[in-house]
Design a protein around this nucleic acid. Structure first.
Length: 194
DNA sequence: AGAGTGATGTTCT
DNA sequence: GAACATCACTCTA
């Protein structure tokens, strides 16, 4: 299975977000199929990290697409985002995935848990891939490390508001920028999607 | 199904 | 010193 080329990410962030559902994420022997994402539309989007200005932490988000943006949330969760566009401050948060390969390794990293709660949520995904903020800025279109592959695009998408952004403006909270594979059970907060 | 709560540490004011 | 794109757990229904 081949990697997606860098210019694949040079499009509108919502378009890339929808297109990312069903794609594969590979790190070593572990391969995951993305089932749920959220789009963050840059400085004008009050829910996006880039709306608060340029800082060392958010630096990868201001660069060209195809790179990872990883940050620590609540002191314990490493969240994986994929930067899109050409230095527009836009990115897609990867929220959930299904296991394609490496189930034993993932189960061990997740504390021996099994079933469909294994990878539903961005913190769990970071744990399954053993990510840290050191991966922030990593090119996903190059071989080795962490890669995004073609995978199997979703047949049908469902959408809803983003999760955990109560601090944003009302119109940004309402915006339906969370997308998931309608056929997958590996999706968080499923009742709020349609 | 939904609400409440404590754990945890980096980032920026 | 406050805020924070969460999780796992405990209730109550």
């Amino acid at each position: 299975m081949n990697r997606l080329p860098q210019d694949w990410y040079f499009r509108d962030v919502v378009e890339v977000a929808r297109d990312l559902v069903g794609r594969h994420l590979r790190r070593g022997e572990v391969v995951l199929r993305i089932t749920e994402v959220e789009a963050y539309r840059g400085p004008k989007d009050s829910a996006a990290h880039t709306s608060k200005g340029r800082t060392p932490r958010t630096e990868p988000m201001w660069g060209p697409g195809g790179h990872a943006y990883v940050y620590l949330c609540y002191g314990l969760h490493n969240m994986l985002n994929i930067v899109t566009g050409l230095g527009e401050g836009t990115a897609v948060l990867i929220r959930s995935a299904e296991i394609v390969q490496g189930e034993a390794v993932v189960a061990e990293r997740r504390g021996g848990k099994t079933g469909s709660t294994l990878l539903t949520g961005p913190g769990k995904l970071g744990q399954a891939l053993d990510l840290s903020t050191g991966w922030s800025g990593h090119p996903l279109f190059e071989a080795g490390g962490l890669e995004v592959l073609h995978g199997i695009p979703a047949r049908k998408l469902i959408a809803g508001p983003r999760v955990g952004i109560d601090y944003a403006r009302a119109k940004d909270i309402r915006a339906r920028l969370r997308f998931a594979d309608a056929d997958s059970t590996w999706v968080s907060h499923r009742s709020k999607l349609r």
